[in-house]
């Protein structure tokens, strides 16, 4: 079953456009949603949550159309955002008591468990929590109301490596039984190298690739060659940079020809993002 199925979403803003955004997330997996700031990650997420009106397109969550079953489906969606705070002066206890009223399947036992596991003190105010603790609190809330799809918008931004790793381990634990699926937007790609099963890559409002992580990386090659070799391949490169040794450039693996005799290696997610960003710059 698909936890999330986005088909041909279009949305035009005065100075930005989502064009035919489509991707699918299989139930029980983690999908990393990557792209530069302003590429359309947050707009896409807002479309999923029905917070912006799409010009066209369809979004299905857990097999049902979001436009038709928004309220039922929101019962099953958990949302956490790094860096944006709600009602920071309230105590966790107060906030939880308000939130739980909205969810039919609220499970107090689960909530208590996660408070203990995440070492969250109910009597603290939101403002007193660290960034990582806030994300954990959001996750505790989401899991206690029985969320099956977690949408995490930049949950690791502003976290130190230890807190980040801890969160990533938590995410992996969540999908371990195959019931919960996670869509995880970030621009910190190293987070995803470890835990993501799928990658969706958005550039300037368009999905460049959505699929399994290793396949995604292997669909590109990072070339290292001499300045003389550059002319031979220049047109096929997504972008490149020169240095005193020659050039380094990114190329779709399908365009690579072994007979060129150029050193090629599988790039990291970060390298793919960087070279795409460089391409964008050239056209601006």
């Amino acid at each position: 079953m698909l936890a999330l199925d986005i088909r041909n979403v279009n949305k035009t803003y005065p100075n930005f456009q989502l064009r035919n955004v489509s991707f699918q997330l299989e139930k029980g997996y983690i999908m990393g949603f990557i792209g530069a700031n302003g590429a359309g990650k947050t707009t896409t997420i807002k479309s999923i949550l029905n917070m912006t009106r799409m010009d066209s397109g369809e979004i299905h969550v857990l097999g049902r159309n979001m436009a038709e079953y928004e309220l039922e489906l929101k019962q099953e969606i958990g949302y956490a955002m790094g860096g944006v705070d709600f009602y920071t002066r309230s105590k966790l206890k107060t906030l939880t008591n308000v939130i739980k009223k909205f969810y039919a399947k609220w499970d107090e036992g689960t909530y208590r468990n996660y408070l203990r596991r995440f070492k969250l003190d109910e009597n603290k105010r939101i403002a007193e929590l660290s960034t990582g603790m806030k994300v954990k609190y959001s996750i505790a809330i989401a899991l206690s109301h029985g969320a099956k799809l977690l949408i995490l918008d930049e949950p690791t931004s502003g976290l130190d490596p230890v807190a980040r790793n801890e969160l990533l381990d938590i995410f992996q634990g969540l999908v371990a039984d195959g019931e919960i699926s996670i869509l995880f937007s970030t621009h910190i790609t190293s987070d995803l190298e470890k835990c993501a099963d799928y990658i969706t890559f958005i550039v300037d409002g368009q999905i460049v690739h959505s699929g399994e992580k290793e396949e995604f990386k292997e669909s590109y090659l990072l070339l290292n060659g001499s300045a003389a070799q550059l002319n031979q391949v220049k047109d096929r490169l997504i972008s490149y940079r020169m240095n005193s040794f020659g050039f380094t450039g990114l190329i779709p693996a399908s365009d690579f020809d072994n007979s060129w005799n150029i050193k090629a290696a599988t790039p990291s997610l970060e390298e793919i993002m960087v070279y795409y960003a460089k391409k964008e710059d050239e056209y601006v």
């Binding site: 949550l49 917070m51 928004e70 309220l71 039922e72 929101k74 019962q75 969606i77 949302y79 955002m81 944006v84 705070d85 709600f86 009602y87 920071t88 002066r89 939130i99 909205f102 969810y103």
Partner: peptide, 12 residues
């Protein structure tokens, strides 16, 4: 307190 965001993600 970002009430609009806070409320919009809930089933209401």
């Amino acid at each position: 307190q970002n009430d609009l965001m806070f409320t919009s993600v809930m089933p209401v």
